[in-house]
């Protein structure tokens, strides 16, 4: 079975303003299979976001290969949707116009793309805010709209770069739950970057643990818990402990 996404020996160097070279990713190999929910977990500076941005086509790797369905990634494409940590809605467009942006740039007719956008807004519970401007929404609502926008473009894989990182703890848990509900209805492949152990175990089928300076894959852990998942299920606490120990070991 060919993986949906595969990076091999992926290396990324950044040059600082003083000309020093800083290695963000040092030979990262891993595969993501179709319909899988993978979490990339690691301390800040481990290059997990960089990996995601390279896969999205927003950054170019220094060396190594990135394959999507077996062919090299050459830039952004609609089959790889992305949700960012920062609020990324276009502030001059209403929420529904934002969600319809993907279909719009791919030439869908006005009525059709509006209907589609409304459908996705309903899935994230924002249909009442369709005509609002992004600044009128709370942080959680903006991220819900950003998820709806990514999904409305019908990608094969959803790349999520700490999408709930800027939210308060309560909203964060709420959105994790909602994300799983959406995902279970319509299983897309998801690669979710986070530095929260709890979030990774709650969401993922598989966790890829990374170390920092330079960024490397330390271990891949399968998460066996049934879905819909609960934090009180047997083994959740033990696994949390284990992953924390693993991270302690890799942190300098």
């Amino acid at each position: 079975m060919t993986p949906l996404l595969e990076t091999s020996n992926l290396r990324k160097d950044f040059k600082s303003d003083h000309g020093e070279v800083f290695c963000a990713l040092d030979g990262v190999d891993f595969k993501v299979f179709d319909k899988e929910f993978v979490c990339l977990l690691g301390p800040s500076g481990c290059g997990k976001s960089t990996w995601l941005r390279i896969v999205a086509g927003l950054e170019v790797a220094t060396s190594g290969s990135v394959l999507y369905k077996g062919s090299p990634v050459k830039g952004p494409g609609r089959e790889r949707g992305m949700v960012f940590q920062e609020y990324s809605l276009l502030p001059w467009r209403s929420v529904v116009e934002n969600v319809a942006l993907g279909p719009e740039v791919h030439g869908m007719r006005f009525e059709d793309r509006r209907e589609l956008a409304m459908d996705y807004l309903a899935r994230v519970g924002l249909e009442k805010f369709a005509e609002a401007k992004p600044h009128e929404l709370s942080g959680g609502m903006r991220q819900r709209a950003a998820i709806a926008r990514a999904l409305a473009n019908d990608p094969d894989v959803l790349l999520m770069d700490e999408p709930f990182g800027a939210l308060d703890a309560h909203t964060r848990v709420l959105l994790q739950k909602e994300l799983l509900q959406i995902w279970e209805k319509n299983r897309k492949t998801v690669v979710f970057v986070t530095h929260s152990v709890d979030e990774a175990i709650y969401l993922a089928d598989r966790i890829v643990v990374m170390s920092a300076h330079p960024g490397r894959v330390v271990e891949t852990i399968d998460v066996p818990f049934d879905r819909p998942r609960s934090r009180s299920c047997k083994g959740f606490g033990e696994m949390t402990e284990r992953v924390f120990e693993l991270l302690e070991g890799v942190q300098v």
Binding site: A56, G57, L58, P76, G77, R78, R80, G81, M82, F84, E86, Y87, S88, L89, L90, L101, G102, V105, H106, A146, R149, A150, N153, L159
Partner: peptide
């Protein structure tokens, strides 16, 4: 962020 989020939509 606005540029990138639009680029990833294709």
């Amino acid at each position: 962020i606005l540029i990138e989020s639009s680029r990833v939509l294709g």
